[in-house]
Nucleic acid binder design. Structure first.
Lengths: 248, 248
DNA sequence: TCACATTTTTAGCGGAGGCTAAAAATAAAG
DNA sequence: CTTTATTTTTAGCCTCCGCTAAAAATGTGA
């Protein structure tokens, strides 16, 4: 009679907490759920809604699986859903998504800054750790980094209470020839591109100037920082920039 | 026709690798599987085998679930199993278990040393991270810590190639009264005990001397380091020590 | 508006890992 | 050597999260 600790129910723990400000203290959800919410969050973008198909493509699952998961998420109040009408995150869902995104980005930053991970390989590691790391751990990492506001790829890091800088940026492809701009951001999902950008020193914060550019993301001639001009290919629509005021 | 990237098979990737030394490069297994292997590893201890019931108690699952999982693990070659006869890890299973244990302990050490986690709360965090962290990440942490050989609770950290110091130690309860000893290790699973030990400064490396002791883990009087003697309760069988040679 | 294309949903299924209740094997006690 | 207790397994079921194939809804071009 030494071991008899069954009682698997776990339904008595969730009392209704504060509710004062934003409902922080939301039960942690499963890994797939976090992935769905993240995907929906950034597919929805400005319009606010995302389509089944887009979510499926993003997560590399069948559309039917998305429908199934979406029904579950809706029944948990994480999103609003109307058949055939697309999906929109609820406030709760948005908060969960943002916290997941925060974890991801803080972890990426930490791995890069503190543990010397190359910026083209942090994504996969962060993708796994974001589901396992507690908010406390992430906050400790953030603190030890001095609460950075963007990750190594220039993506904004949501604050612990769910605020995020949502500014939209231009791509290099949209930039007027000759304008001076600061490299702001690039997706963390394309290791090849990231290695290439590191090679030509085009990283967030660097000043660039487009000297010439072919349409449809064709060859582009860039002056990166003060170095010799380089000719790049296939990066114009990937790299986000922000014009820089010439102080005359 | 923009999105059509199904092809979910992922079975072409696993060619047979080196096989030279120990079969490192073993496919990563699921979280429950890692937990079972860890549990079996340290329940088996010296005898080499573990019982269904013990595993069930350790993992807080029903015995029937253990039988089910054990069959799966056996069919994957991670352990040897004979109905009603208990279970023994295969070499592969042992390696997987040790790598998981290494991840756990390195992570605990890192959280404590670098991120300031209190030693009574690292266990839970490590328990989750150990399944998500890559061996590369763990090796980077280990390197940045100077490749420690034991974690904050004194547990030995297996090396990256699966060697671990398996020395057995005495408990405080077994120590002759008056003998001077060094505190070596305590379980990481009991936060209350850990807080208490921290309070009386009884941490790995500290010298202790048992001044008096009641049987059956009753009250014990200890001299910890050079401080005033303290009377403790319920820790004698938990705290592992190693006698210290008086250099006369 | 009708016909066809596309998107989304439903129906039905599978595997991993849980569970309980009952049966079977092993171990312990008389 | 039985009888009883304990341990382990089997049987049958459940949930989560995938899948495919087929049906239904929506959208589009003529």
């Amino acid at each position: 009679m030494a071991a008899s600790a069954k009682k698997a129910s776990s339904s008595k723990k969730t009392a209704a907490p504060s509710k004062t400000t934003a409902n922080l203290a939301i039960d942690r959800v499963s890994e797939p759920v976090e992935d769905y919410l993240k995907a929906i969050y950034d597919l929805a973008g400005k319009s606010g809604t995302a389509s089944t198909n887009d979510v499926a493509a993003r997560l590399n699952v069948a559309a039917a699986s998305v429908t199934g998961m979406i029904r579950r998420l809706a029944s948990q109040g994480l999103l609003e859903y109307e058949r055939y009408r697309g999906v929109r995150l609820s406030e709760t869902g948005r908060v969960v998504a943002l916290r997941t995104i925060r974890r991801h980005r803080v972890i990426e930053t930490y791995l890069t800054e503190v543990l010397g991970y190359p910026w083209d390989r942090v994504h996969d590691e962060a993708e796994r750790l974001e589901h396992a790391a507690s908010d406390e751990l992430v906050d400790r990492m953030a603190t030890s980094l001095g609460n950075p506001t963007s990750d190594p790829h220039g993506a904004p890091i949501p604050t612990a209470d769910g605020q995020m800088d949502e500014r939209r940026h231009q791509t290099l492809a949209e930039l007027d020839i000759g304008t001076r701009a600061r490299m702001v951001r690039v997706s963390d999902k394309n290791p090849g591109l990231l290695r290439y950008l590191a090679e030509i020193d085009l990283t967030p914060g660097t000043e660039v100037q487009v000297l010439a550019r072919a349409p449809f993301d064709g060859p582009i001639t860039l002056q990166v920082g003060d170095t010799e001009p380089v000719v790049g290919q296939g990066l114009a629509v990937q790299v986000l920039v922000e014009e820089v005021q010439d102080e005359t």
